[in-house]
Design a protein around this nucleic acid. Structure first.
Lengths: 358, 358
DNA sequence: AAACGGGTTGAGACCGGTCTCAACATAACC
DNA sequence: GGTTATGTTGAGACCGGTCTCAACCCGTTT
């Protein structure tokens, strides 16, 4: 009497109706038993669940979303998942999401506004319940407005955005940069370069310029703070952007071999620091004797390189986790005004800072 | 006459019907214009598109999937997105997917069968068109069968699975391990440990044991090949598994300080190598004088650590990309028998190998 | 003038769930 | 015994798209 197990391939999916028919009940009742809602007698429930099992029923989450309007899915848009910073933040968010019963859809923006727009469009089309975004630009915020206009909760992480009514979770970048730079200034350096891959239309950086990435903008502020406090004039000229265009190693080489070479570098992230480190080695320069180097993010290599690199560690995992928590709260209906959470960074001193040799 | 732009929040989504009404055409016609299929006169199309724009229409991808049966979405299940290997493979897959118009849904399995089952269940419920999986186990394959039974194309990457009818993309791990180990044997080492975090029920490893992760199993084979070729007897006793349970650093410390300390270590991945590197430093051992170390994967740090670590680099990006390509081909209806693509690894010799000092 | 053909359009079923509402059975109460 | 409460079930609308099919318009052909 028992039927053969579901076999073959390519055949139609088993639906609630199929299960209902097999169990000899109505579709509504079968749905109640399968979806675990409403009232169903124990006998019927067993019968339905048995039939479902026998037929190999798998619920269709999309159909469910269609009728309930909730997908139990969050979207996350990062610059590049290959970047350890984003990988860690994503993991932090994924864990919180999973614990709360949410799935995660991931997209890369490549830090490009158009790609970001496409990614956000896809996420909205998939009716995510809310969106986590490391905004490609803190200034051009139309992509973010799209999310808000669509009525979807939005939480920004790592970067804020001007005039966008959304929660954000960021690190205390300005004070972090200040502290990091002070280390160099206090060691006696005057020729200190700040390097970032953030794009900037002008060749030179001016104090009033607005940078597209708020986290970098804040680090630049902190850098300038410390430089100014150290009595260094016109510190803006030591800010070097667009490092991706020129190539980090090339830029570092240029700064280290020019007419007025730098004796210390603040790297805006660990990938940049890696480029600088390689360039220095290539040039035969010894850290910290010939060059002092500090950076953001406690990447793997910074601890095992020789010498160890002094870094400002960020609570990356927490940034992602906290952002996901805020988002889930919004999804669940929290209507309080937007908040900005600022997480502390902490200094890990290693051996990459010394007084300048010239 | 012009209406106010779509405003407010929380209101119903704009649907095809709304657009149709605003444009004064039927739902069917509006859908044709919006979905760019079927025949629509230019005049009507303009009218519909104009109305859609005015109302802020955003298509509902779920509804589309419901009626077409296609989601244009691939699922990917990795061990842990924070692991650079998986991050890179994911990126490779994401790029290929995006280029072909597919989105990606990501899940972490934590290398755990139950978590993997849940992840795959979610992906299937979301009706992904196909699934990319780095199987948590190459032996217990019920989770993978679930995918096949559901009639969804499946492509495995990094690891194969016994008796599962699916394409796979892996690296030539056995020959890679052989080459890596030979370096040590040829340098004169006899006490060489192979370390992996792969789980294994027994305390000791026996040649006939089947390991849960095929990539590691193959590396062990290659290791044994080279050890045997080098005339080392009972090389199995040098295979150390379950490193996660004990802790990599702890295990390395134990192996380096025991009664019969090892003089060389083959690390099954870069994370393990990092643990070994740290343990060695902690013990005051110098690489390569006191310990020779080789590993899989050309992680960032292996190039900048002192000394540089000799590694077997894998084409990680390509593994992900190739897997996605195969999957998309399957999704599009390719019915050829399953293939296994084996990608070459290549050796990067640095300074972490020297003859044993004892 | 009738028949034919292509281009356009609309009505309505369908995908697979949820959910409202009414119908009915049975038990509890007065 | 009648009324009310409670539990269980089924019919059918609904979510927002796609798609089939029939109807219609208008120009051509015979």
């Amino acid at each position: 009497m028992s039927e053969p197990a579901a076999t073959g391939s390519g055949r139609r999916e088993v639906t609630v109706s199929d299960v209902a028919a097999a169990a000899g009940v109505s579709k509504a009742t079968a749905a109640r038993a399968l979806g675990d809602y409403g009232a169903v007698s124990d006998a019927v429930r067993d019968r339905v669940l048995g039939a479902a099992d026998r037929l190999g029923y798998r619920p269709n989450a999309l159909a469910k979303t269609m009728s309930t309007g909730r997908s139990n899915t969050l979207g996350i848009v990062v610059g590049d998942i290959e970047n350890p910073f984003f990988a860690q933040a994503t993991r932090g968010a994924a864990d919180v999401a999973a614990a709360a019963g949410f799935d995660l859809i991931l997209s890369n923006s490549d830090e490009d506004l158009e790609t970001e727009a496409k990614a956000i469009g896809v996420q909205l089309a998939k009716r995510v319940d809310g969106l986590l975004v490391a905004a490609a630009s803190s200034v051009e915020t139309q992509n973010l407005r799209t999310v808000i206009d669509a009525g979807r909760p939005l939480v920004l992480f790592d970067r804020t955005a001007q005039g966008v009514e959304a929660d954000s979770v960021i690190a205390a970048n300005r004070s972090g940069a200040r502290e990091l730079t002070s280390l160099l200034v206090d060691a006696g350096h005057r020729q200190i370069a700040f390097i970032s891959t953030t794009t900037h239309p002008a060749d030179a950086f001016a104090r009033t310029d607005v940078l597209p990435t708020s986290s970098v903008a804040e680090r630049v502020e902190g850098f300038l703070d410390a430089m100014t406090a150290g009595g260094i004039e016109h510190p803006e000229r030591h800010v070097h952007l667009n490092a991706r265009r020129e190539g980090v190693e090339r830029m570092a080489t240029r700064l280290l071999t020019g007419a007025d070479p730098v004796t210390a570098i603040v790297a805006s992230d660990s990938l940049i620091a890696l480029g600088v480190f390689r360039a220095a080695r290539e040039l035969g320069l010894q850290i910290p004797r010939d060059l002092s180097l500090v950076a953001f993010d406690d990447a793997d290599w910074t601890g095992v390189a020789t010498p160890g690199i002094t870094v400002m560690a960020q609570p990356i995992h927490e940034i992602g986790a906290e952002a996901a928590e805020l988002l889930i709260r919004r999804v669940r209906g929290d209507g309080r005004p937007p908040v900005t959470r600022v997480l502390k960074q902490h200094l890990i001193e290693r051996e990459s800072v010394a007084p300048p040799s010239r």
